[in-house]
Amino acid sequence: MRPSGRAIDALRPVFIQPGFAHHAEGSALIRMGGTEVLCAATVETRVPSFLRGKGQGWVTAEYGMLPRATHSRGQREAARGKQTGRTQEIQRLIARALRAVVDLKALGEISVTVDCDVLNADGGTRCAAITGAWVALRLALEKLVRDGTLPALPIKGQVAAISCGLTDDGPVLDLDYREDSTASADANFVLTADGGIVEIQGTAEKDPFTEAQFNTLMRLARTGTAELFRIQTAIVEEALKA
């Protein structure tokens, strides 16, 4: 039995609250077990200099952790004067995941920045951020269609992410911190609802894992993201009706 009592293919309880950030064009607070991330999308009618005049939009992301999101206080990156390599890597991952499902040409010369701030961390923060960021982005783009800024929704698909790993209990889905910190291997899967793969990050912490074990993790990830896609869709539909 896993420390949490979950089955090997069970997600932690997932809760998404849309519209949590009142002033953002789109937002979502996502909770996956003890991990909570606030995702807020900001729309600007300008693009980075390398895209000016090209009739194309841009989607990017920023990521950060509150000092007491973890067991001990972490120093604010602003106090250090620079972001850590981990932070930069995660926010680039989130941005890539979102751009993979947006038609940037259809977006026009508009930029959307999705800020992902970790309120509480208990494993899988980057995966929760990607899953919540898609909801925030979708709601922001829906607002642009509703107010007439865009003629149609420039969304090509749906993206979510989940972690899987090899633990003493075997291959498991959606690792919490206790499992993640002791896993012999772990991987983050960024997948689309139509079966596409955006990115897979896998690491052996001890002995190398086999292709057969990787395939098992992949099947678990498909199971987990299928449920996340269902939750995302239900939340967006509920928010749009409201």
Rank of each mutant, 00 (worst) to 15 (best):
A10W: 08
L11N: 05
F15G: 15
A24M: 06
E25G: 03
G26Q: 00
S27Y: 08
S27F: 09
A28T: 04
L29G: 02
G33I: 09
E36P: 11
L38C: 00
A40R: 09
A40L: 07
A40F: 05
S49R: 12
F50W: 07
Y63P: 00
Y63H: 03
G64K: 07
L66T: 15
T70K: 13
S72A: 15
G74T: 14
Q75K: 12
R76G: 06
E77N: 07
T84I: 05
G85E: 13
T87Y: 10
Q88N: 11
E89M: 08
E89Q: 12
R96S: 14
D103H: 03
A106T: 09
E109D: 11
N120H: 15
L137W: 10
K143H: 10
A152D: 13
V159S: 04
C164E: 11
G165Y: 02
V172W: 02
D174E: 01
S181I: 02
S181C: 05
S184P: 01
F189H: 01
T192A: 00
A193P: 04
A193E: 15
G196W: 04
E205T: 15
F209H: 07
F209I: 10
A212S: 10
F214V: 01
N215E: 13
R219V: 13
T223P: 03
E227V: 09
E227K: 12
Q232E: 09
L240M: 14
